[in-house]
């Protein structure tokens, strides 16, 4: 389990990095490497060139202001998780990150790396969709931004071109009255989710006015739950959960089966997870429920 040979470069500027990335069809960005290096050890991934962005200027910023939390491409998950400012602006970040691997992984793994890797069972892409995050992407044609919602196309497949780099992501500050939660069922501590839910609930007087609900680990990508978002309107702690459960179950019609669970399990468990989360959040009446 050793990586195949590759060329390595460590550019100092984003222009150089973009140029290096464009130089080969199988070049890859190396940030924390916590997904990439293991897959290279298995030789599942055999890039010809690794573009290590650790020295690229301007990618190590973690900025928190009234608009939200901006996270540069080389900022580690631990750094975000440990930031009290980031937590108060976007509580969902810490709530998602505590499910991401373990300390040792988060110490090197980056938020943007996880967003780019697009594991269908990963927490951060789903959170980014639920929270309305926007990605900043740099490519040969210059810079563009992209909403996380719509960015995820399939397993390990995003709207990112081969020659593009995610240089940062901005999570908008959680609005008053909104509660963002992440919960999941995983087989073991730190594992990718078998069934996961990232949800931003807009609460009005103890009931749900609206929500952005995103499943992860259920189908081939993080997925908005359209029917459940309709069904959850007006949900409150004392409400019957059947309708909401059924809506999520329908939303997850394309749930996949694998060695950990069947598609049917994922549909059922997603419905149950959603009802339980919506109950807890409504019961807390806009408080910090769901922060586990």
């Amino acid at each position: 389990m050793k990586p195949a040979a590759f060329d390595y470069c460590r550019p100092a500027s984003i222009d150089e990095a973009a140029a290096a990335l464009a130089s080969s069809d199988s070049a890859k960005v190396l940030a924390g490497g916590q997904s990439l290096v293991p897959s290279m050890n298995f030789r599942i991934s055999q890039p010809s060139l690794l573009v290590d962005i650790r020295d690229v200027e301007g990618l190590d910023g973690l900025e928190v202001d009234q608009d939200g939390v901006s996270i540069g491409a080389s900022v580690t998950q631990s750094r975000v998780m440990n930031s009290d400012e980031a937590y108060s602006a976007v509580p969902g970040l810490r709530r998602a990150l505590r499910f991401v691997g373990h300390l040792q992984i988060r110490n090197r793994g980056t938020v943007c790396g996880s967003l780019a890797h697009a594991d269908p069972a990963a927490e951060l892409p789903a959170l980014a969709m639920a929270a309305g995050a926007r990605l900043t992407v740099r490519g040969p044609q210059g810079e563009r931004t992209a909403a996380a919602d719509g960015f995820y196309l399939g397993p390990y497949w995003t709207g990112l071109e081969q020659s593009e780099i995610i240089t940062g992501v901005c999570f908008p500050a959680e609005a008053p009255g909104t509660v963002t939660v992440v919960d999941e069922i995983a087989r073991r501590s730190g594992d990718f989710a078998v069934v996961g839910l990232a949800a931003a609930f807009d609460l009005e007087d103890g009931s749900v006015g609206g929500a952005r609900l995103v499943s992860f680990g259920v189908s081939g990508r993080p997925q908005r739950l359209a029917a459940a978002e309709e069904a959850v309107r007006g949900f409150h702690a004392g409400a019957a959960g059947d309708g909401l459960y059924g809506a999520a179950y329908e939303d997850a019609a394309d749930a996949v089966g694998d060695i950990h669970a069947s598609g049917e399990y994922r549909r059922e468990a997603l419905g149950s997870l959603l009802v339980r989360t919506a109950r807890a959040v409504s019961a807390s009446n806009g408080g910090k429920a769901g922060a586990r």
Partner: peptide
């Protein structure tokens, strides 16, 4: 985690890190 070492104060997995990193 058997390969855990400390890099600049942080525990990391040395098997999932390239030496050049």
């Amino acid at each position: 985690g058997a390969c855990t070492v400390i890099a600049d104060g942080d525990a990391i997995r040395s098997c999932s890190t390239l030496a050049v990193q």
